[in-house]
Structures are given as structure tokens and as C-alpha cells.
């Protein structure tokens, strides 16, 4: 089991005005499954390629435990990468693809065959060992690509958007497979994704990258309950933000003075509450509200509310929202445990 540490990792591509990555510091705990999350263009794939050694950093270091791999060629890093597309070698069979890395290491053919057979059985592809990549479905090809990297028992496994080329059903299956294999092998794994729901469902830890900077590295639930900034909260679907000032356990804002949970900082700030934490009906921090719109979303219903001229959005159980109609007066409550204070955005008074 290996800890992966990135220190001040920076990269600017030739001809590009903006750096792809500005001094990234990140520690991926040994044996963890960490998601590197961010919108496209935030430097995720660049980070992966730097770790894999496919491109060279302008500055910074990459360490496995205490050993720097920054100047090693890709094949000597102990890092295996699975790309967004399966990129199977078309001239080799499925077994040939899975055995490729072992063959490059010069292992004896019978040992390669045994490892490949075991790996194929683990990803349930034993029947397809002699197929060519062109004869596989997208999900099968992605499983071969995963098996091809895992069979090497790398110290660190990098997965670049491994689910994005699959349709919804296959995605669930593949996500389960990645989780199971990672737990069984304990290989330190970093998976890149732009989809926050996917990161939450897959990873033990999430590192959120915005504009080439690490903005929060935490357990998945923290991004909902304790986001580090308004940008983080918005990335995770936060929509309710109230400027004001915290003092003596209360928050003064346009909606009045709201009770806060103990332990939050004092002073000016931005109050946020998850849309799914807002309750319809009386409770703590009750507020009179007018229903503006009701939108059925399948598993939830979205209720747009006006409170004291301020827009709030609530997500409630479908049956709780459906009897409502626009214009109706209701009482909503904001449980103090769901209220979280963010630093005031820069430039705000």
C-alpha cells in the first residue's frame, strides 16, 4: 500500500496563456479510493498524465511514499493508468491485451497465462479471452482495460473518467466492479471525474479541483454539509445563499435572525442551506413563504419559494410537494444543524 503525494505540481502547456495546473498539493491516502473531481478544463487529466509520467511538470514533485518518481520514465513508476476510452490494442486478443504489461516485464508465458486467466475470471470475461477488441461491447472493452491495468498490481492506479463512455446500466455495474476490486486489492486509486454524483457514489475521499486549484479535499458528505466556499457549494448543487452576519449563535440577514448550530464562526459570512434540508411546515427557524413554482422531478419535487422577497429553493419528497400550487402561503423551517456559514465572496461588503 502506497501513499501518493503531489507537492506544488504545476504545468503550463506551450502556447497556452493560462496554466493548466497552479501548484497542486494533494495527498492520496494509502489504500484509498480518491476522486479527483472538477469541471472540464480544471486540470484533472493533466494531473493524471503528470502522475503517469506521460508529460513532465514545470515545477513540483510527485512522491510514492517517500520516493520521488518525478524524473522516472512512465514504465518505471509503478503507476498504471486507464484512459477515458478503453484504447485496447486492436491486434491483440482480450487475453493478449490483459497480459501485455506482464509480457513487457518479461515474465514467463505460463505465469502470464495464469495471472491473465485469474484476472479475466475476476472481471467475468473468461469466455471472451480469445476475442479481438473489435468484437467487444463498450462495457466489455472498459472491463478489459481495467483488468489490463490491475493485473500488474500497480502501486497506484489512475482511472480517467472510467464510466463516461458507458450508458447508465453499465455505469452502475462498472462502478460496483471498480469499488469491489479496489477494496479487494487495496491499491491506492485516483479516479478522475467531472460528475459530482459519480464521485460521491464511488470514492472514499473527494479532491475538488476548480481552475487548476485544489479547493477542498474531504469525505463526500462534507461537500454537502461543510462546503469550503460558495463555488464548492454551487458545484455540488447548492442554490441557497444568504449574506449576513453571525453573532452570538444567531445569523442576521434579510430573513431576520436565524438560530445557528453551535461552533460556527462569528462575523460576516454567507449562510447556505441545502435545498433538500429545507422543511415545509413549522419547525425551528420558521419563516412565512409564498410558493412560486412546483416542479416534479421524479424522485423529488422542487419547490421555488419567495421568503421576504428572497428566493429559496427546496427539494422535498414528491408527495410532500405535489399538493402545493403557486401563490399558496406556507411556512418553511430551516433546521439549525443544516445551516452552514461560508466566507463572504471576495469584493462583497
Amino acid at each position: 500500500m502506497t501513499r501518493l503525494t503531489l507537492k506544488g505540481l504545476a504545468k503550463r502547456y506551450a502556447g497556452a496563456g493560462q496554466a493548466a495546473l497552479h501548484g497542486l498539493d494533494l495527498t492520496v491516502a494509502s489504500g484509498s479510493l480518491t476522486a479527483l473531481l472538477g469541471p472540464s478544463g480544471s486540470g484533472k487529466t493533466t494531473t493524471m498524465k503528470l502522475i503517469a509520467g506521460l508529460i513532465a511538470p514545470d515545477a513540483g514533485d510527485i512522491r510514492l511514499d517517500d520516493r520521488s518518481i518525478r524524473d522516472l520514465p512512465p514504465e518505471r513508476r509503478g503507476v498504471a493508468m486507464v484512459f477515458q476510452n478503453p484504447l485496447l490494442f486492436p491486434h491483440l486478443t482480450v487475453a493478449g491485451n490483459v497480459g501485455f504489461g506482464l509480457r513487457m516485464r518479461g515474465l514467463a508465458p505460463d505465469r502470464i497465462a495464469a495471472s491473465v486467466a485469474a484476472m479475466l475470471a475476476r472481471v467475468r470475461l473468461s469466455d471472451l479471452a480469445d476475442r479481438r477488441p473489435a468484437q467487444l461491447s463498450g462495457g466489455q472493452a472498459q472491463r478489459v482495460a481495467l483488468a489490463r491495468a490491475l493485473v500488474l498490481r500497480p502501486e497506484v492506479l489512475l482511472l480517467d473518467e472510467p464510466l463516461s463512455s458507458l450508458d447508465a446500466t453499465l455505469r452502475d455495474e462498472m462502478r460496483g466492479l471498480i469499488r469491489d476490486l479496489q477494496r479487494e486489492t487495496g491499491i491506492t486509486t485516483l479516479v478522475v471525474t467531472h460528475d459530482q454524483a459519480e464521485a460521491v457514489a464511488l470514492a472514499d475521499r473527494i479532491a475538488l479541483l476548480l481552475d487548476g486549484r485544489l479547493v477542498q479535499h474531504d469525505r463526500p458528505e462534507a461537500f454537502y454539509r461543510r462546503p469550503a466556499s460558495e463555488a464548492v457549494a454551487r458545484f455540488f448543487g447548492g442554490v441557497n445563499f444568504l449574506p449576513g452576519k453571525a453573532r452570538g449563535g444567531r445569523f442576521d440577514c434579510a430573513l431576520g435572525a436565524l438560530d445557528l448550530a453551535p461552533g460556527l464562526p462569528e462575523g460576516p459570512g454567507l449562510l447556505t442551506i441545502r435545498p433538500e434540508a429545507i422543511r415545509l411546515g413549522p419547525g425551528p427557524n420558521p419563516l412565512p413563504a409564498r410558493v412560486q413554482a412546483v416542479t416534479f422531478l421524479g424522485t423529488q419535487t422542487r419547490v421555488d419559494l419567495g421568503v421576504e422577497g428572497f428566493a429559496l429553493q427546496a427539494l422535498v419528497a414528491p408527495e410532500a410537494g405535489l399538493p402545493l400550487s403557486p401563490g399558496q402561503e406556507v411556512t418553511v423551517s430551516l433546521p439549525p444543524s443544516a445551516l452552514w456559514l461560508l466566507p463572504r465572496p471576495e469584493g462583497a461588503a
Binding site: 498524465k49 520514465p73 514504465e75 493508468m81 484504447l87 513487457m104 491495468a149
Partner: peptide, 12 residues
């Protein structure tokens, strides 16, 4: 990309 994959799988 195929060469990059090969390199990351340990090929010189």
C-alpha cells in the same frame, strides 16, 4: 494514446 497506454502499462 495507444502508445501512452503501453507506456503506463510498463512498456519502454
Amino acid at each position: 494514446d495507444h502508445e501512452s497506454v503501453a507506456r503506463s502499462l510498463g512498456a519502454t
